[in-house]
């Protein structure tokens, strides 16, 4: 609907992004931090992958490295066969708390990536996206005039406007109230189903991960490691009320147990 949607059937098994033995150390005032320890993930084309873990488990470090914003101490990240060492036009990042520029109105915020790439903004695509997320008519509003949910919807439009094939989302809805969060989760599921983007989504909410993901990469902290990878084969589209079904709650409990029972 929004873009050439890659047929999810034949793409099911092709690998979109590869994290290969990623390790990251860095120095702080209080000593060295071992943020990531030999993390390997194969992200499938068109997949919705959630990185789930407690704070300090290195999931943000991993995501920022996948965006080409951080270097790794060891290992590598590839998009297809291309090594990611700097930001890539096929990969767009959605940040915590929307990260809109407060001195620009909504329209000019969305034009930012085009300005940076020295391209003319794709008005048709932008208008379609704005309409899709329900922000039509708010183009002249400034970020502080918009609610948190609207701001995050604007940032989703900003990222999708340049039509990347991979969306990296760094706890995008963490600061929203529960009601708005459900709404945003539904929206991102719909957008994902319509566009066939590959989405890698960070969260520390187990139920958010189970609601959204095809696969959940459960991580443990200090050093950041993969504890488990869980498939979520709930049928789509998943309605908000699925979160109260016994099957859903069982899955959440199972993951919770995994995290609780890991020796640290």
């Amino acid at each position: 609907m929004l873009a050439a949607s890659g047929s999810s059937v034949d793409a099911q098994n092709s690998v979109k992004m590869t994290v290969d033995g990623a390790s990251k150390f860095y120095q702080t005032r209080s000593g060295g931090v071992h943020a990531l320890d030999d993390v390997s993930i194969k992200v499938r084309e068109g997949e919705f992958l959630c990185l789930l873990g407690p704070s300090g488990c290195g999931k943000s470090t991993l995501l920022w490295s996948m965006a080409g914003l951080h270097g790794l101490s060891g290992g590598e990240i590839r998009l297809g066969s291309e090594k990611i060492t700097k930001p890539h036009p096929e990969i767009a990042m959605i940040f915590q708390e929307a990260n809109l520029l407060p001195w620009r109105n909504l329209a000019r915020n969305i034009e930012l990536p085009f300005e940076i790439k020295k391209q003319d903004p794709d008005r048709e695509r932008i208008n379609k996206l704005l309409k899709r997320v329900g922000l039509e008519g708010f183009e002249t509003k400034y970020p502080r005039e918009l609610s948190g949910g609207m701001q995050q919807r604007a940032s989703i439009v900003r990222s999708l406007a340049v039509n990347p094939s991979v969306l990296l989302m760094d706890e995008p809805f963490g600061a929203l109230d529960a009601f708005t969060r459900d709404e945003m989760n539904l929206l991102i599921q719909e957008i994902w189903m319509e566009t066939g983007k590959t989405i890698i989504f960070i969260t520390h909410s187990i139920s958010e991960a189970v609601f959204l993901a095809d696969r959940i990469v459960v991580m443990s902290a200090r050093p950041g490691r993969i504890a488990n990878i869980v498939d979520v084969d709930l049928p789509r589209p998943r309605p908000v009320k699925i979160q109260t079904t016994p099957d859903f709650l069982d899955r959440v409990e199972a993951i919770k147990a995994m995290i609780d029972h890991r020796p640290s």
Partner: peptide, 11 residues
């Protein structure tokens, strides 16, 4: 975060 945002678009 705002600098990272600009960088992520290749600024």
């Amino acid at each position: 975060a705002k600098i990272a945002l600009a960088r992520s678009f290749g600024a």
